[in-house]
Amino acid sequence: MKFSILKQVAMVVFGGLMMSQAGSVLADNQGGSFTTGLAAGVDFYQITCFDDGNGAPSYAEAQVKDMTANTSKVNILLYKGTACTTNKCAQSSLDTTDSDTGYSPLIKVTQGAGTYYLFVKHTASGTDSYDVSAHCKTSGNVHTGTSFISRQQQ
């Protein structure tokens, strides 16, 4: 009897821990900032596209919102692969208006499942903060497995 109660408690605790971990890893939005303020600052993320049961990934799409109004504007470069003739391997997008709540134009790189590289830069010195939205989708435009990993923050 006691053992069964313990099992239930354990399931709740572990379940909660697992869910909190999954939430931070699988979120499709990634906030960041250029804390050094230097113009040459580059933030670097890996976005992994995988089949989470919704279907095989066909492409990754991304856009960025510059959340700091100043001279410097935030832009992103999304990149994967080297076979770039049929489909582009790299696309970039700049949020030209940082005094609003809108994102930059949406860009797509169609290179299937696997790891995409996302670089966030800004056009001049400034303590810019930003929010990147990225999603992996199937060829039928259904959202599928997407995970963000931060590799470099400047």
Binding site: G31, M67, T68, A69, D98, S99, D100, T101, S129
Partner: peptide, 13 residues
Amino acid sequence: PEQRISALSQLAE
């Protein structure tokens, strides 16, 4: 703070 910054960003124009 991000929301407060958003308000001020919009007041920059």
